[in-house]
Design a protein around this nucleic acid. Structure first.
Lengths: 175, 175
DNA sequence: CTGTATCCCAGCGGATACTG
DNA sequence: CAGTATCCGCTGGGATACAG
């Protein structure tokens, strides 16, 4: 209730915060989904290793060399990503060689696809050298980008967005 | 040329890496757009401050309290976000008070919308307490999610995705 | 209210050396 | 090839105290 009313005329206003009765009560703990995500992929090494995984990299040597990470860091992070269920270590045999294993994205890892695409797409708008590797639609060759929709399938802009306490929140609040 | 051919039968393969002549040559420097993005928003404090900005938070005191960050960290990160052009410090006067200023998202900051939504959406699939604040479509009340498309507007799945060296990459599309 | 200035610690990530 | 072990510097972030 102490929340400042947004001036409707204010151009940069992005989200209207509706029905915020006690926003501050939801500050602490693990309510924020972004923080939850960052616990798993909040490091530079995790993100660029996943980048390489989405580029098709699989073997330790590939992932390490192409990310430029040191062996130690890559090994530690890969182990964490496997423990967290984003990657899976899968046996792999080349004819004439002995069995090795490779890192492949699990379903949970694959579900990061929109996150990775969104970050790549945004990063591409920042200053820096042109070129490099990009993800494209195999059908038409156009680069990928992330669009925002709602669960009902509507395209959503920031002007159509509202921040609110989730229904679960209102329920859990009683406990 | 040294790139290992992907076995076509392998289920977990996500992206087909096509026409990779010299993938390793693009390892170093600043080619990776994700790394570029992480230089600006790669810290936990930056992401959750932006989260609050998308929730409608504007004043230093709001942003600090609701993120749970210490004053020092919040101040430092907000300054960086302003310097990087994601937030803007805008004068602001309440009737009867002296002029203050508030942090508002710039156009560049607003363009992070898909990234923030994608991370929230993914984080929501991870284990943790139900509830908290969420972004919804004001029209229908459904929560937001990030979808992947190509620049031509097609919906794209990982199976339809290809990683390749960009030809020129100078497409300044969207805004 | 909106920060700055210190001190401190934990974790990330690089470098090097070593193992199976 | 695929790591492990050790050392070490840098920075992120908390706590506290102080300032305009």
């Amino acid at each position: 209730m102490a929340h400042t009313q947004e001036p409707e005329t204010d151009l940069p206003v992005v989200t209207r915060v509706g029905r915020f009765v006690d926003r501050d009560a939801w500050t602490a703990e693990g309510w924020c989904k972004i923080e939850r995500a960052l616990e798993l992929v909040g490091t530079r090494s995790a993100m660029i290793l996943l980048r390489e995984a989405f580029y098709g990299g699989r073997r330790f040597d590939e992932l390490t060399r192409r990310t430029g990470l040191s062996d130690a860091v890559a090994a530690k992070r890969l182990k964490q990503l496997v423990d967290d269920g984003l990657l899976r270590l899968q046996p792999y045999r080349e004819p004439g060689s002995r069995t090795r294993h490779e890192y492949v994205l699990t379903e949970r890892g694959r579900s990061l696809f929109p996150v990775v695409v969104a970050m790549m797409s945004w990063g591409a708008t920042l200053a820096g050298p042109a070129g490099g590797v990009e993800l494209v639609h195999a059908g038409c060759g156009e680069p990928l980008l992330a669009a925002v929709r709602c669960a009902a399938g509507h395209d959503v802009t920031m002007a159509d967005t509202e921040a609110q306490l989730s229904r679960d929140a209102k329920r859990a609040r009683r406990a």
